[in-house]
Design a protein around this nucleic acid. Structure first.
Lengths: 355, 355
DNA sequence: ATTAAAAACTGATAAAAGTCATTCGCAGCG
DNA sequence: CGCTGCGAATGACTTTTATCAGTTTTTAAT
C-alpha cells in the first residue's frame, strides 16, 4: 500500500482530502503545518507528498526547499495544493522542484488522477528497494526487468559461431552484451603456459560479457563456443541506456553481481582447501544440475576431459585419474566423453563421508 | 552539453525559442511536427523535450504517449508548451506524464528556469551512463556519490571493537553497512576443520558488509578486528534509500561490484595454477601497496603468519618456509611479525624470473 | 623479572598432485 | 582396409605441499 503525506493547515480541507485518498486505498499521514510535515516526511519517507502553499509556521515553499536538501526525501514526488491559481505561484512552485500543481477547489477525480500519474511516473524510475511490499511484487519486478532486457535483444543482431570459434578474447574492447540463444559457450581466463581456468559454462538464455561492460575495461577473459551456437549481440549503448532509464534493471544487476561475488568467494575457498577429488565431485554435481535444467530429465554430462579439468583447476591427467576412481567405486558411468552420475544421493553421501 | 529536443510547428516560435535555449548553451534539435519529434527523440535521446500541444500530423498528447511506451525515451523530462491556458488542458497534460507546463507567451527567464529545474531534478535521479561528457565529470560524480555515502555515516553510530572481536559472523542477518573508521579488519570464510580464507583486509575509510546487504541474504563470511578498531554502523534502510534515490551511487556500486568480480576471478586463476611461493610473493606485494597507501612512505607489513597464510590459502608452516626462503635470498627482512620487502623492483624481477 | 601461553620456526615424513612418456581406442578419411 | 590423429587412459616418477611433532622465540600477564 502506498503512503501519502498530506500537509494542509485547514482541518476541513485536510480531512476531506485524506478521506478521498483513503477511499482510493492509500495510507494517508496528515500534518497540520509545514514544520510537522517536514518531520513526518523524514520519519516515514512516504511515496508521495501533497502540500498546501499558504500555511502558518512554515509555508509550502519552505517545505519543498527543506525536503530537497535531504537525500532521503529529495526524490519523493511532490504535489502542490493551493487556492491561488495565479500563474506566478504556479511557476515558482514548479521551479522549486514540484512535480504537479493542483488548484483548489478540485474534484476527486482530478486529485486521484494527479496522484496516480505521479506515482506511476516515480515507479518507472525507481522500484523501491527496502519497501518491496511482498515476494510476489519483487518477483514481478524482476520478471519485468528481465523482460525489458530480452526486449532489447529483439532489435539486436544474431550471430552464429561454429564449434571452437572465439567470440571475444582477452584484451579486446567490449562492444556488446551477449545473450546465448542456442548452444553452449565457455568463458575462461588464461594462465601462463597454456593453462586456463573456465570461469563459466553458459546455458541457453543466459547473458554474458557484462562485467567488463559495467566497469568499462577491456576483456580479461575469452569466450569460445563449445558447440555450434547462436548468440544475440546487443549493442552496449542500448544496454547502458536501459540501465540508466530503468532502476529496476539496475537493481537486478546489483543483485546479480553481488551474488556472483559470493559464488566466486565460495569457489576461492574451495580452490584453496578442498582436494582435487572433492572439487571434481562438486563440479560434477554442479554440471549435472546445469545440464538437467535444460532438459528436464537427467542427462549425461557431455564435456571434454580437458574442459572439465579447466573448470576444476587441475591437470587433465589428475582429473582423469579422479574420474577413474569414481568409476571404480561405481559412482559414475563413463561412455566416451559422456559422464553420468549413477545415483546423485549416493554420490553426495560419498562426498560427505570421504572427501 | 545538454541536448534539448524542441517540437513546435510554428516556425517563428520554434526558431525564437531555440535561439533562447542556444544562448543558454544548450544543444537544440528542432522538429516541426510530432511525428518527426518522436523519431528524433528515439534517435538522439535528448536530455529534455519541449513540445507544443496543438500540432498537425501528431499532436503533443500523441507525442508523450508514444514516447512513454519506449523504455529509452520514457524517462526524458517532458515540458508542454502551449497557447492554451485552460485548466483542463493543463491537467490532461500532467496526467499523461508531463513534467511541466509553460503557457505562451512566456518570457526567456520563465522558459530557462523551467528547463533548468527539470534538468536538475532529472539529474538527481540518474547520472547518465553512456554520456558522461568527460573523465573529470565522471570523477566528480563518483566523488559526489562517495560523499553522499559518507554523509550517511554522520547520522550513524560508531562502535568500538577490541582486537580479535567479531563484528559479524557467518549465518547472521545483515542490518548495517559498515565503514571502517580507524583500525584494521579482516573478513573471512571458514572451511572445514578450522581452515579459513581471508577475503579482504580492510583499510581505514573502506566500506564492508555490502555484498550480503545488496543481495539480501545472510552473511556467509565473518568479520573480525585485527586491532582495536572503530567502525561506523550505517542502518541498512538508510543505505537502501540512498541507493534508490541516487542513481549515481547505484552506478558506482555496479562498477565496484563488477570490478570485484574480476579481481576474484583473477585470484581464482592464481589459486588454481600458481605455486604457493608465487602466491605468497604476490600477496606480499599487494599488502605492501595497501600498507603504503595509509602511510605514504614504505612501511613494514605487520601481520601474523597465520593470517598471511589464510590470505594465500595455504598451511601456516608452508607459508613460514616460503618466507624463510625469501629471507635467505635477501628479498625480504623479518623483524618479529613485521615483514618488509627490501627492494620492490628486485622482488618483482625475481617473481618474473623464477616463479 | 618471571612465567605461561602463543606464535614462529624446523625437521621428518606422508600424501597429493603435477609432469612426461606411452599406450589404447575410436572416428574420419583417402 | 589401414592410416592418421586426437582424446582418453595409465604407468612411472618428481615436485609440491600438508601434516605431525617438537623446539625456539616472542609476547603478554602476573
Amino acid at each position: 500500500m502506498k503512503t501519502i503525506l498530506l500537509i494542509e493547515d485547514n482541518n476541513d480541507v485536510r480531512e476531506n482530502t485524506a478521506e478521498i485518498l483513503e477511499l482510493a486505498n492509500y495510507k494517508v499521514i496528515q500534518a497540520e503545518n509545514g514544520k510537522i510535515g517536514v518531520e513526518l516526511a523524514a520519519a516515514h519517507l512516504p511515496n508521495l507528498i501533497i502540500c498546501d502553499i499558504m500555511m502558518p509556521v512554515l509555508d509550502g515553499y519552505g517545505v519543498i526547499h527543506l525536503l530537497s536538501k535531504n537525500v532521503k526525501t529529495a526524490n519523493i514526488p511532490f504535489i502542490f495544493l493551493t487556492a491561488k491559481s495565479e500563474r506566478n505561484d504556479f511557476r515558482k512552485g514548479m521551479e522549486m522542484g514540484a512535480d504537479d500543481y493542483i488548484t483548489k477547489p478540485f474534484d476527486d477525480i482530478e486529485l486521484l488522477k494527479a496522484v496516480e500519474s505521479r506515482l506511476k511516473k516515480a515507479e518507472l524510475l525507481k522500484n523501491d528497494y527496502s519497501r518491496d511490499e511482498a515476494g510476489i511484487n519483487t518477483f514481478l519486478d524482476e520478471a519485468k526487468s528481465i523482460q525489458e532486457l530480452k526486449n532489447l535483444s529483439d532489435s539486436a543482431k544474431v550471430k552464429l559461431y561454429r564449434k571452437k570459434e572465439l567470440i571475444y578474447t582477452e584484451g579486446n574492447n567490449p562492444n556488446y552484451l551477449y545473450l546465448l540463444q542456442k548452444g553452449k559457450i565457455k568463458t575462461f581466463r588464461a594462465h601462463e603456459y597454456g593453462k586456463e581456468l573456465i570461469i563459466s559454462l553458459l546455458n541457453e538464455g543466459e547473458f554474458f560479457g557484462y562485467t567488463t561492460l559495467l566497469d568499462e575495461t577491456p576483456y580479461n577473459e575469452s569466450a569460445e563456443a563449445l558447440e555450434d551456437s547462436s548468440v544475440v549481440l546487443i549493442p552496449k549503448d542500448d544496454f547502458y541506456s536501459l540501465l540508466n532509464n530503468n532502476h529496476g534493471v539496475m537493481k537486478r544487476f546489483v543483485k546479480l553481481l553481488s551474488n556472483e561475488i559470493q559464488d566466486k568467494e565460495e569457489q576461492l575457498l574451495k580452490m584453496a582447501y578442498s582436494s582435487v577429488k572433492k572439487r571434481v565431485a562438486e563440479a560434477l554435481l554442479k554440471l549435472q544440475l546445469q545440464y538437467k535444467k535444460n532438459a528436464k530429465e537427467n542427462v549425461a554430462i557431455s564435456i571434454s576431459r580437458e574442459d572439465l579439468a579447466n573448470i576444476v583447476g587441475t591437470a587433465t591427467e589428475s582429473l582423469i585419474r579422479t574420474l577413474s576412481d569414481f568409476k571404480h567405486e561405481n559412482l559414475i558411468e563413463v561412455k566416451g566423453s559422456n559422464i553420468s552420475i549413477i545415483d546423485t544421493l549416493a554420490f553426495e553421501a560419498y562426498i560427505k563421508k570421504y572427501l
